[in-house]
Write a protein that binds this DNA or RNA. Structure first.
Length: 292
DNA sequence: AATTATACCAACCGCTTCGGA
DNA sequence: TTCCGAAGCGGTTGGTATAAT
């Protein structure tokens, strides 16, 4: 298929992007199926890399950057599609806690997911949640909420749904005495998320079952993982000033409107998730803990 | 049914880092 | 060691689909 054919087919499209591109030598905007085919074919034969060359040789009027991005984010055969699993969501929260907005680094631990996907997930779901709570997504308060409430709930749900989740985290009972739990310990039956460990969570459900040999899932810590980022994680230690816990208690007010609460839960796991990650009893418990 | 708001995500932009000459 | 092009990365934008009014 030649490039003229590609161009013709797009001129037939009503998209507003098209008209602008006619005047430029470099095409921008959405990729057509023909372009995808050209790029995929070329990479299949010649491999990745030298993207400017790829663009030229494949007969694409795209920049090398654009080709690279299209391949990595859409055409790569090993990409996973569909909604993030609970395991993936939990891992994103955990890794973001460690590394912040290092999307590419985080995505490396989610086989088949791209940095763009992870970034979009964070922006749409997690930031939406922060917005609901009327706080900054990077604030300590929000991080604590993540650590205290949603991350344990994710673990619980994963356990419940798979029955085989081998959390690398240890329950309160088998934790060494010199390393007391730093979480709230809701209801004593909840898993405690251990932000001290250096290795990544071991996943045994859909994510890892088919990818267990993937080196990106190695449980050995990378230099960075063992480094200082963890110290910035959701510690519940000292508090951040006079209004800090008061602010937390305000979010976790048991009397929060039911619809709003549902909405908040939906932010993280979607409406079709297993069950609510939130209940009023826990909110009350948290409030008491936090006000101490 | 039409309009508006919101959510999602693909793609772009600009900066930084890397690697080879 | 320096320069320069390629590649990588994170932030942002804009289009489309869906929900709400």
């Amino acid at each position: 298929m030649d490039f003229d054919h590609v161009m013709r087919s797009q001129y037939d499209s009503p998209s507003s992007v098209r008209t602008e591109e006619v005047t430029s030598d470099v095409r921008k905007g959405p990729w057509t199926a023909e372009e995808d085919a050209l790029l995929a074919n070329h990479v299949k034969i010649h491999g990745e890399g030298r993207w400017n060359l790829v663009a030229r040789r494949a007969g694409l009027k795209r920049t090398g950057k654009s080709c690279r991005l299209r391949w990595l984010n859409y055409l790569r055969p090993d990409l996973r599609r569909g909604n993030m699993t609970l395991e993936e969501q939990l891992l994103i929260l955990e890794l973001h806690c460690r590394w912040g907005n290092r999307w590419s680094k985080i995505a490396q631990h989610l086989p088949g997911r791209t940095d763009n996907e992870v970034k979009n997930y964070w922006r749409t779901r997690v930031q939406k949640l922060a917005k609901h709570l009327k706080c900054d997504v990077n604030s300590k308060q929000f991080r604590d909420a993540m650590r205290c409430v949603w991350m344990p709930r994710f673990l619980e749900q994963i356990r419940a749904s798979t029955g085989q989740f081998r959390a690398s985290t240890q329950g309160p009972s088998d934790r060494p005495a010199e390393d007391p739990p730093r979480t709230h310990g809701i209801g004593s039956g909840y898993p405690v998320y251990d932000d001290h460990r250096d290795s990544l969570p071991e996943l045994s459900s859909s994510v890892s079952s088919s990818d267990s040999s993937d080196p990106r899932f190695s449980s050995s810590p990378s230099p960075n993982q063992a480094g200082g980022i963890g110290s910035e994680c959701f510690g519940l230690g000292s508090g951040d000033g006079p209004n800090y816990w008061t602010g937390c208690a305000q979010w976790w007010r048991p009397g929060v409107d039911a619809g709003e609460q549902e909405d908040i839960n939906g932010c993280l796991v979607g409406e079709d998730s297993l069950e609510s990650l939130w209940n009023e009893e826990d909110a009350w418990f948290l409030q008491q803990q936090l006000l101490e």
